[in-house]
Design a protein around this nucleic acid. Structure first.
Lengths: 206, 206
DNA sequence: ACTTCCGATCCTTGA
DNA sequence: TCAAGGATCGGAAGT
């Protein structure tokens, strides 16, 4: 549904061999087969999704539902209006490919995007149609929720959130820990422990 | 060895953190780690390798030796001197990605190729080296801390966070509430209550 | 994603 | 043993 206004759909409709079905997807824009999905992003949107960190939660989520994830980027990411370090772009691409194991491909516009999507759909359905998806990424996705929750604590970022969860196993246990117990975690001093302890016990004043 | 004459090597040599070791590889140009390899191809060479079908034997071979295979294509494959149908190029790319499960990425020249290779090598060998924090812009005002903490819960935004705190007074009480108690809050359905209850009790998996 | 900045943490010294 | 100093890590904000 999100893609309705894109010109990619116009091009896809022209292809006889393609049948399009519209649905509201939890994540990802084009489902190619039961195990492959394609997320289309315009260059500007790709850059913005790095800046606001959207992409770093979106992609693992897709990875947890589909074996093959392809990100199609339309346009030149090095020439957007956003001021972003080229190193950050290279880093994001490398993260996608090497650490998340997904494919990234650039197109010059909606026509090429459409051609690519229809070809990939054909390959995915005829070539790998019978492959079963193992949904291997699921636990990772759950971890993100717990980590995200802990990152709400003062003085706690990504690293400390993981350290706390390594020690306590659940966010619930972290919130119920005493100051002494929190101190046992490496990198948590008495001062930080007290801040963490206090945070969840702050009295709400309307 | 095959890559010695490329300008990519010149750029890689400039990076202090990179140490280069030359070997004669059976296939693939740059070994990023024990499980990742990168094959660099200039656009013209990529097109030729499709025409003479070299690529269709090369890639599966690499795939059998390395878990992650990345093909870096330098230049624009749609503007080479060879007469090849764009559809054939799209088809080859789709085959690589969807059927062989490898990543393809385009660069505009040796400088970008080198930057990408060094970043991918770092990621493949050390991971990120830090964690991405999923939340940013934390408040320091007391009341806001409590609200912000509750906003980490699934399906809970600013308004619901305030409703929860109006009812329970502290974030601690929210996290320790039973599903039934959560349901008593206006605007919290049983389904949402369950999600809230579960979130803080998710088991952390390393 | 990366960079820069800053404060907290820890680690070593040396009296 | 402990205090002061510096190296290091981690968080926050900005690109």
């Amino acid at each position: 549904m999100r893609e309705q206004r894109s010109r990619v759909i116009t091009y896809l409709r022209k292809e006889k061999s393609i049948s399009i079905e519209y649905t509201s997807l939890p994540s990802g824009d084009y489902v190619l087969s039961s195990s492959a999905v394609c997320e289309r992003k315009e260059a500007q949107d790709f850059v913005l999704s790095i800046l606001d960190r959207r992409i770093f939660s979106q992609v693992p989520k897709m990875k947890s539902e589909y074996e093959t994830v392809v990100v199609v980027i339309e346009g030149n990411i090095f020439k957007t209006r956003s001021a972003i370090e080229p190193a950050a772009l290279i880093g994001a691409l490398s993260w996608l490919i090497v650490l998340e194991g997904i494919s990234v491909i650039f197109t010059d516009g909606p026509a090429m995007t459409a051609a690519l999507i229809s070809t990939m759909a054909r390959h995915a359905q005829n070539g790998l149609g019978y492959t079963i998806s193992l949904r291997s990424g699921k636990p990772k996705d759950q971890n993100a929720i717990a980590q995200y929750l802990c990152e709400g604590l003062p003085a706690v970022g990504g690293a400390k959130a993981q350290d706390l969860l390594d020690h306590f196993k659940t966010a619930h246990a972290v919130f119920n820990a005493t100051v002494d117990q929190l101190c046992e975690v490496k990198g948590i001093s008495r001062q930080t422990a007290q801040k963490i302890y206090n945070a969840s016990r702050i009295q709400w004043r309307k």
